[in-house]
Computed example of a mutant assay.
Amino acid sequence: MRILVVCGAGASSTFVAQRVRHAAHDRGRDISAVAGTEQSLPIDLDAADIVLVGPHLQHALERIQRDAAPRGTRVVLLPPDIFTDLDGSRTLALIDEALSASTDAPRTPREELA
C-alpha cells in the first residue's frame, strides 16, 4: 500500500507520513508513506494508492479527487487536528476506514495486481 500525504510545502506532510509509517510498521503492515506537495501532486499521483490531503488544502479537494479518479486512487481529507496524532495511529485508522468504505467499489487493475 502506497500512501501519499500532501500539504502546501511538504513540511507538515513529512511528519504525518513518518508517523503513519511507524504506526504501520508497529502493526506489521506493509505500508509506504511519503510526503508531497500540491505542486508535485500530478506526478506523485501515479505512485499512490491513497492520497491524504492536508486540511489546509480543502479548497483543492475536488480537483485532487478529479485527478485521482482515473487512476483509481482514493483521496482522504485529513481533519484539522491530525497533526496532534503523534503516534500515527489515528491516521492509520483513517486509511483503514477509506479502504473499508471502498470495498464495494470496482477494483482498478492496479488493485487487482496487488
Rank of each mutant, 00 (worst) to 15 (best):
V6S: 00
A98I: 05
I50R: 01
P70C: 00
R66H: 12
R29T: 00
V53F: 09
T91K: 11
A101D: 11
T84G: 11
Q39V: 11
Q39R: 12
P79Q: 05
P79N: 07
A98S: 06
A23M: 06
R90K: 01
L94E: 09
V34M: 11
I43F: 12
H25K: 13
P55I: 08
A47M: 12
D81M: 11
V53R: 00
I3Y: 06
R63H: 11
L52P: 01
G28P: 08
A114E: 14
A24M: 07
I95Y: 02
D67F: 14
I50P: 04
P70D: 03
R74S: 01
A9C: 15
F83L: 14
V51P: 00
A69D: 10
C7D: 10
E38Y: 09
Q65S: 00
S89N: 06
E97C: 10
G36N: 05
H25A: 15
L77N: 07
V76N: 06
R19T: 04
T108C: 14
H25N: 13
A35F: 04
T37K: 09
I64P: 00
D44C: 13
P79E: 11
S13G: 04
S100V: 10
S13N: 01
T108F: 13
T103W: 13
C7S: 01
A101L: 03
A68Q: 08
V5D: 10
R21W: 07
D46T: 08
S89Y: 01
D49V: 12
D104C: 15
R74W: 03
D81I: 09
I50L: 07
H22T: 14
A35M: 05
A101V: 05
A114G: 14
H59P: 05
A93S: 07
F83Y: 14
G88Y: 01
G88V: 01
T103A: 13
G28W: 01
A98M: 09
G8V: 13
D46A: 10
R71M: 07
D44W: 13
I50F: 09
T73Q: 03
S40A: 08
Q18Y: 15
A68M: 08
T91A: 08
D46M: 03
L113N: 15
L92G: 00
I31W: 02
C7Y: 00
S32N: 05
L94F: 04
V34N: 11
A60R: 12
L4F: 04
H25L: 13
L57K: 02
T84S: 09
A11N: 15
A105H: 14
R27I: 02
A101G: 03
A60P: 10
P42H: 11
S102M: 05
A101R: 07
G8T: 15
A24S: 03
P42E: 06
P55E: 01
I3R: 04
L41R: 03
A98Y: 02
D46K: 03
A93L: 02
D96M: 03
R2V: 10
T14W: 14
V34C: 12
R90G: 00
A35Q: 11
A69E: 05
T108G: 13
R74N: 02
D44L: 13
V53W: 06
L94M: 01
V5Q: 12
L4Y: 10
V34T: 12
R74I: 01
E62V: 08
R90S: 01
P79I: 06
E111M: 14
T108Q: 12
P80A: 13
D81P: 08
I31R: 00
A105R: 15
F15L: 15
R19D: 08
R66D: 11
